[in-house]
Every structure is written in C-alpha cells, then in structure tokens.
C-alpha cells in the first residue's frame, strides 16, 4: 500500500526528516509516536503533499505509484486522506458545500457520476450519526467558530464521507475529551478493512487504547529509532521517550 524509502525532507533550510523507511501493507494500522519536534507531523504532511516541505531524497510509493509526483488533490483523489492536527477555518463556505465538492471530485476521478445536493443529504445522514454531529453543522462555515472537539470530529466526518484507502491521522487525539476521543476512534475503526490502511500519528498512547495498532514506530530526530508491536506503546507510556533518545551520530 505505502512504501516510504529513505525519505529526507526540509522546511526552508532545515532538514526535518532524515531518512525514514516504512512500509504499510493493506489492512494494517501503524502508529507513529515520538516527542515534540521529532518530525511526526512533517511526515504526515509530506504524505499529503503539503507545499511547505521539500523532499530532498528518497521516495514514497503508494499503490505502486510515485506519490511524490502527484499534486495534493491527486493524492486525495487516489484515496489518501490527512486528518489535520489544526483543521483550517474557511468562513463563507458551508460544510455541506465543501464536503459535497470534495466527494464529487473523488467520484469524478473514479469516472463516477456526481451526486446532487439532495442525494448527498442522504449520504450525510448516516455519516453524521457516526460522529454524533448535528445536521445543523452542515450549514455552518467549514470549522469557523467550531470548538477544538468539533473541528476534530469534523475531520473524522470528512474521512467517513470520503472513505480513504490510506488515512493519516495527525494528532487527532490532542485536545479531545474522553467522549470525543471515543467518537473519533469509532469513526476510524468503522473504516478498518483488509483494503484500507491507517497511519496514526500521536504523542500519547491514549488514542491507541481505542485504535489498536498492528505496528508502532518511534520517531526521533527525523528518524525511526524503534519499531515494535502494540506493546511498544505501553512501554512508552510507562517509561517516556528519553530511554530511546541516544545521541545521534554526526
């Protein structure tokens, strides 16, 4: 599904990712953990195609295609989804319009007919229930004036509607209370299937109690310093990150 090989990326002149190699197979859930500033969010954004980062070395292969050669919208159309750490507010565009526009772009990319606003309402009904969001949220501007929890739920709503093949969750758990965390996790778990993969980026082990990963990786200083099974997350919860942070050779 996703094959990252020796990935180096910079923001401006600063190298943030310093050689990441990671393979995610179809149906797997991987977690990337690590201290602040380790490059977790950068990895998530590079996968989604954020223009603020430059890949200087290495490759990302997605479903056999060169992901780095695709524009952000092409990646989305091919089934890549990033749940943002800080969802962007877009005053003046309703959630309903935005979601349907995105939904139809994905359908167009698959040579399927676009859906009209009425058909889309039916699709939304079930998805809204999944994330326990009120239908009135659809008439509000995208994320504008949403609380932190509402914004994160809105990300999961988008994910539920767009049904990605590869979902990347960037610190979706930060700032969530326990109820919101459960709702978010249920949304993610509902999508789990042998054809879909998920990459969960998180600082804390908490979310992984709800979304149980197949593999856990620890990112530090722009490199993966340790990989293991779900028990690695528990170990990190007990011991913190310090024991993994050896001085990086020059």
């Amino acid at each position: 599904m996703l094959k990252i090989t020796n990935l180096h990326a910079t923001a401006g002149t600063k190298e943030i990712l310093k050689g990441i190699t990671l393979t995610i197979n179809a149906g797997e859930v991987h977690a990337i953990m690590g201290p602040n500033g380790s490059g977790k969010s950068t990895l998530a954004q590079v996968i989604a195609g954020h223009p603020g980062y430059e890949v200087t070395k290495g490759s990302i292969e997605y479903q056999g295609k060169d992901l780095l050669d695709m524009e952000a919208e092409e990646r989305a159309q091919a089934g890549v989804f990033l749940a943002f750490q800080y969802p962007v507010e877009i005053p003046g565009v309703t959630n309903a319009y935005f979601l349907r526009a995105a939904y139809n772009e994905l359908r167009k990319a698959r040579d399927e007919d676009e859906v009209d606003p009425i058909e889309f309402l039916d699709i939304m009904e079930e998805k809204l229930a999944l994330v326990e969001m009120d239908a009135t949220m659809m008439q509000r501007s995208v994320n504008a004036g949403f609380s932190g929890g509402e914004k994160k739920r809105n990300e999961i709503l988008q994910m539920a509607v767009l049904e990605p093949t590869l979902a990347v969750l960037d610190e979706t758990d930060s700032g969530l209370d326990i109820d919101a965390l459960r709702i978010v996790a249920e949304g993610v778990n509902k999508l789990r299937s042998p054809e879909r993969s998920t990459l969960v980026v998180t600082h804390y082990q908490r979310l992984l109690n709800y979304i149980v990963p197949d593999h856990v990786h620890v990112l530090a200083g722009g490199r993966i310093v340790r990989s293991g099974g779900k028990e690695l997350a528990h170990e990190l919860e007990e011991k913190g990150y310090d024991w993994l942070l050896e001085p990086v050779p020059a």
């Binding site: 989604a48 223009p51 919208e73 989305a76 989804f81 565009v93 935005f98 995105a102």
Partner: peptide, 25 residues
Amino acid sequence: ALFYLQSRGIPLENAKALLTYAFAA
C-alpha cells in the same frame, strides 16, 4: 486554506475560486 481544500481532492484552481467566493460572501 488552499492546501486544506486540495488535500480533500479539490483541484487548485477550484480551491482558489472557492476561497475567493467565500471572501466575497
């Protein structure tokens, strides 16, 4: 905001147009 829309599959030109429209709204 542009990247946010693109990351949902909305092509760059449409994303610009949508944000321009939203500005006017």
